[in-house]
């Protein structure tokens, strides 16, 4: 199954094709954001949406702001364009971390078995028993407080690594406080998002483990770890990739939900969820200010849809057995 084969299959599938097309659109949007929505000259941070005054009342689309402005006179068009970068960054980095964590936990549990397996799976179960969003909210609030202190510590280093991967922020510098609230949200989602992958990995490895070549390798006397990496991982990893590709969309959704509740990106940051949160103040007259929900809402919907369409098709192609499972 080469990359070319997969790609050909994807193109041929109408649903996946639409997904790819949308994704391509978002990639173009993200890469050429400065072209579509030029950064104002005196701006200090391109991700802070430029604003036209301070007034609370949203302004419908007009000549200066083609998609209008939202509460606080933030330009919606600018926010949507630059928000695509935020969405990609958040989605991809969170997926990367949850997948790695899941694979690590799952493969160790499956390979060693016994009490290690028992303990790890019990921990996984505890994490799964949490009402996910609620715990993420709690953890985000706590982390915001912890990081707000700005003291050094193990947590700061992990946030720095995340900041480096997400924003390309130098490890030597202090974390930008504007980005900090995004990082705390991401950490919370990572902390409570790795369990599915761990379970799937464990299950797959257990199946593969019984295959003859693994047993053969063991009789020859190959070291445990080598067996794990040489033989087992590649065979168990494909399904995980499928899940990961589907997860990107749902992580973006979860992060948007945090932002919506006021726990994600800072006010005025180019983040779709944050932009929609303004709508909460305008519910009775939303019909008049519908642009403040519809445009950013469409952006999230199409973005997540794109990933899910592609992921769904990928699943069919890579692993027909998995049809219909999450």
């Amino acid at each position: 199954m080469t990359f070319g084969y997969v790609f050909k299959k994807l193109i041929k599938n109408p649903i996946a094709f639409i997904g790819l097309l949308l994704l391509l659109g978002f990639i173009i949007m993200a890469v050429w954001a400065p072209v579509f929505a030029p950064v104002p000259e005196n701006a200090r941070d391109p991700y802070m949406i430029p604003r036209d005054g301070f007034s609370a009342v949203p302004v419908p689309p007009n000549e200066d702001h083609i998609l209008g402005t939202t509460e606080g006179q933030y330009d919606i068009f600018y926010g949507i364009i630059w928000g695509s970068r935020t969405a990609f960054r958040i989605g991809v980095v969170i997926t990367l971390f949850t997948t790695l964590m899941g694979i690590m936990v799952g493969s160790v549990a499956a390979y060693y078995g016994g009490w290690i397996d028992e303990v790890l799976m019990r921990i996984t179960e505890i994490f799964q028993t949490f009402p996910f969003l609620l715990t993420a909210i709690t953890l985000t609030s706590v982390l915001q407080a912890v990081y707000g202190r700005g003291e050094a510590g193990a947590l700061i280093y992990s946030a720095k690594i995340l900041a480096f991967l997400t924003f390309g922020h130098s490890l030597a510098e202090k974390i930008n406080p504007i980005q900090l609230t995004i990082l705390t949200g991401m950490i919370s989602i990572i902390m409570f998002g790795w369990m599915t992958i761990a379970r799937v990995t464990r299950g797959n490895i257990l199946t593969v483990k019984n295959y003859e070549y693994a047993i053969a390798a063991e009789t020859i006397g190959a070291k445990n770890l080598r067996i794990l990496f040489r033989h087992l991982m590649p065979n168990a990893i494909f399904p995980v990739l499928v899940i990961a590709s589907m997860n990107i969309g749902s992580y973006v959704l979860t992060f948007a939900a945090l932002s919506f509740l006021g726990l994600g990106a800072q006010r005025g940051y180019a983040d779709w969820g944050q932009m929609i949160s303004f709508a909460r103040n305008w519910i009775p007259s939303l019909a008049e200010y519908s642009h403040i929900v519809i445009y950013p809402g469409m952006a999230i919907l199409l973005f997540v849809l794109a990933w899910n369409l592609v992921g769904d098709a990928l699943r069919d192609i890579l692993d027909p057995r998995m049809r219909g499972t999450k």
């Binding site: 302004v59 519908s290 519809i294 469409m298």
Partner: peptide, 17 residues
Amino acid sequence: SMLIVACGPADSNNNAD
């Protein structure tokens, strides 16, 4: 159609304005 929905309210908004 989604895009049309997305662009649709612009008109009514202008009226509302």
